[in-house]
Design a protein around this nucleic acid. Structure first.
Lengths: 222, 222, 222, 222
DNA sequence: AATGAATGAGCATTCATTCAT
DNA sequence: CATGAATGAATGCTCATTCAT
């Protein structure tokens, strides 16, 4: 009990602190003192700070991938080999992304973590995520491909990442943006609101006309 | 020679290292040793690491804001009080964003830095940017407002940030994404390519249908 | 063994170095290297240099205050509510001051430290001492008050500090003065000698005639 | 003009800062920035921090010794070979000590500096003072000797230092003590007050009965 | 299973001083 | 005569990690 408790308390605290201040700016001392756990406990239970970071991600991504695979199974069963519409795919992914954090801390923390995983120097994290969770994403992009047969492969790849950027950037920087929005428009946005606003933009972005592959009037940049 | 040189060498090195590994992960020792400059030189010329970070941004943003103001002046002159079309506004901004880094290091570094400014815990940076460059952004959003009279203010605010997210996330994480794209599609994308691809998506996103303000079928999330 | 040992070695070394060269002139590296202890050990065990300084004082003052309270208890019991003579009070204080250092390093170090506490810029120290040990001094001055009913309160306050100055200055600058004395008179003074010499001077100082509160033939000074 | 001005501004600023915070705690940067003088100016004009410290003292002690010698000359002339009474000697010294600072900053600063010279690790200072100003003190002690023929030489030496301690300790720690006094007795003391109070105590201390050279009931201390 | 103590490497910053101009 | 730039050494402190118990 005590053992499990310690591990959980470390993970709970770490995920909040990581999301708040980034990985490098969060010391093991910060975590262990806030979690009221011995300083050596992190190294004892996780081996290193790196492994702790990965464990924090695994606790979100493991249930997510399981759920997402199941949801895609159901979707494929429902459409019996026919093409699954893009909107249904996106909707399904959104639902799964939302379900997991709903059970624990918050979507914001999860997104913040994802944002950090991309933006921060933690090369090991990108590798870890690719290794452990690459297959779901591959399955998903395969289905998206069938749903958007007119989109060239490269175009689809980039657009998916454009949209990923939109979502991660918005939800991970949520607090700062929310502050500005509230200050400027006196309007408090909930995560639900934001997702409602995101949906049509994402869909429109995916369905935007394909640009001509030629001329470009912008100057070059290194 | 020596005096200007030292400051420049520090800034050049710092911006590359910051972009590569983030602020916290880049020590002054990293910077000064790579720049072949005395360790104390950073504190002598900039006062502190914080101020160095701000100076790195200023070197990009100062010429950008100047250029952008000029470009908006020209645009307003050209349209003589009439509404400037959204696409032209976006195009103008993109051009200015591209011109500045073209003269120095690279767009990638600039975007990486912008991404860090949003994602990393450097509160002082966000404050500094808001203080020094908030006015251009305000001017720009004012013009966007005239160009999109049917969009509710809050909706416009959020969509601009959605699109900002798209651009920053993509261009700042460029290397990683480029690696994956190259691996998967054997296609090497230039920044020009990427911007060509981004344009229709951004425009479509801004012009997406406005969502109903009511019901939401997604589960709640904390 | 190791655990207590490190703390003790740090304190032992720190108190000697502080007394020899002052607080600012003694670096943690000086202390830890002389104490053959890891550099980080000071911060691990004490938290900061400030706290180490306070701990050095506490190790002298804690046993002193305890002893002094006990001695004053005994004195009060002995005199059964009658006024305790001044000389007995001074004698008792002197005995307690001497007993504590006798058990550890030396009176000289203790006095040197006290002198530093007054003369050096360590505001935190004065505050710390006032906070932790102010009450004994208050009790003592209360008894002195009863022993010198004819002395105005302010006069008594200043005379006590005059005498404190005499003692601290002499005993803390002991080495330098001893050098001069030895050179000039070929006479080596022990601390015992010095205290024997101090006693009548202090008593005479406390009992000096009270000056007229009026005229003053000295010129003014800023 | 500019040259002299710089030197003066450095000395003025340095003496205040040294008195406020001690030598080690006052950096050349502190001094030069407060004096609005180039950082290198101290080393340019004085050669080193050490020499600056000595120069600060010299500016007080040079006029003092000159004045004191003159005053002693006058006293000797007045008494025409007869013994000068102790009180007159002390009074004369006090007058000279007070006159010099009266013309510049303040007595407090001077005493603070003297206190530092004794208590702080600046060995070079003690040597410098001994070298440059030892002769006046020797002349003075010679006269005191004639005024107190019954006092053994060693006793006189120590009592002079006891009294020096009283004066320096009180006047150098003036601010702190004044705070306490004011708080406790609501009485604001001027330097004049203090000196009026000091006089009888010092005289009584010098004239205290000579202790028996033997027995001592106090415990020994290292 | 868990922890208090300890460690060596590294951190940003400040120092007095030097030197070319 | 004066100074801005630069420097090497040292400062207090924090870090992730290790280890004996």
């Amino acid at each position: 009990m005590a053992q499990t408790d310690t591990v959980t308390r470390i993970l709970d605290t770490a995920e909040v602190l990581f999301a708040e201040r980034g990985f490098a700016e969060t010391s093991l001392r910060n975590i262990t003192s806030k979690a009221k756990v011995n300083l050596a406990a992190v190294n004892y239970h996780f081996g290193s700070k790196k492994s702790l970071i990965q464990a924090v991600f695994a606790r979100y991504l493991d249930p997510f991938t399981e759920r997402f695979h199941t949801a895609l199974d159901e979707l494929e069963a429902k459409y019996e080999g026919e093409v699954i519409p893009l909107e249904e795919l996106l909707e399904t992914m959104a639902r799964c992304v939302l379900e997991v954090p709903a059970e624990r801390n918050s979507l914001k923390v999860f997104m913040k973590l994802l944002g950090l995983a991309y933006s921060q120097a933690q090369g090991h994290l990108r590798r870890y995520i690719q290794e452990h969770y690459g297959s779901v994403f591959t399955r998903f992009t395969g289905l998206v491909r069938q749903a958007t047969p007119d989109l060239p492969d490269a175009e689809r790849f980039w657009r998916l990442h454009f949209m990923l950027g939109t979502v991660i950037f918005t939800l991970s920087g949520l607090d700062a943006l929310r502050d500005i929005a509230e200050q400027d428009y006196g309007e408090h946005v909930s995560v639900r609101d934001l997702i409602r606003r995101l949906r049509p933009v994402v869909v429109a972005g995916m369905n935007a006309p394909i640009p001509a592959s030629s001329g470009d009037m912008l100057p070059a940049a290194g």
